[in-house]
Amino acid sequence: MAERKLPKSTGIVLKPMKRTGKQLLRTLIFGKPNTVLYPEQKLDLPQIYRGKQVLDFKKCIGCGNCVTVCPNDCMWLEKVDDPELGKIERPGVDIGRCLFCGLCAEVCPTVALHMSTAYELANSERGKLRLSPMDIRDDAFGSTFVEERQKRMLPTLDLSKCTGCEKCAGECPEMCIAMMPVDRTDRNKPEINLAKCKSHAKCVAVCPEKALTMTEVYESYFEMPEPKLILDNCSGCGACARKCPSNAIYMLEMPGTEKTLKGGKKGKPKKRAVFVFEKCVGCGRCYQACKFDAIEIPGVEK
């Protein structure tokens, strides 16, 4: 092995003493030490710092995606009786178990949930670390925050108003609206290819029933599961439509399924659920609500 060249330490300990002496002069005479005296001084935190969660009640739709994605199961949905918004469901956080990974804010489809820069969260009682939705409520926080996720103006469909006139499909310059017949109903439903949509809003302008409206949609990087209807099992009870947080499920009548009543009169036709996938946030609550195994989500078990 070749003899290696070691750096010369001629001064024995004088070199490091020179460095520390300089530092001593710097901290004692020409300046101050580097320490941040914590309770008096605090670090400047960047906007994206992940501290305590903050929830915008008005934007939140109560879908529970944050609850599902949380790796530590530290969030839950709680029923809240709000004077303004009525009876709603909003998430609460157990700060004591939170990882502060920020996945809940990232997955939120309406960017109602944010991570604020508050980090002094210690408490003397463990119970007080369980923050209810009211504790994390701050409706004004979103306006102070420069949202990093890009938003697009996209047409959303209110299927109850739609008559299936096909005017929107003819008007779209990108040809991204296709009228698809809905099984066993006599209705056509416009299906909008959101990937191709360029937000011209011509379909909205032309819609005679005002069934299409432009709304802000935030881009999501998570591929969410899409529910799939097994039509034979569907009893038309409407539980899924009531549970859906984003009103993406509509109950449509199926003509020709009317039962003949005693008097020879025909009763009401059976209903079926119809999904408007553009509005679906993938929370899976319809799947949980369905008692007849009529909705399944591929790859997800109940």
Partner: peptide
């Protein structure tokens, strides 16, 4: 460079 002075410049560290 300062670390090299502090560590390798010191005979005791070597």
């Amino acid at each position: 460079k300062e670390y090299e002075d502090l560590f390798e410049g010191s005979k005791i560290f070597m």
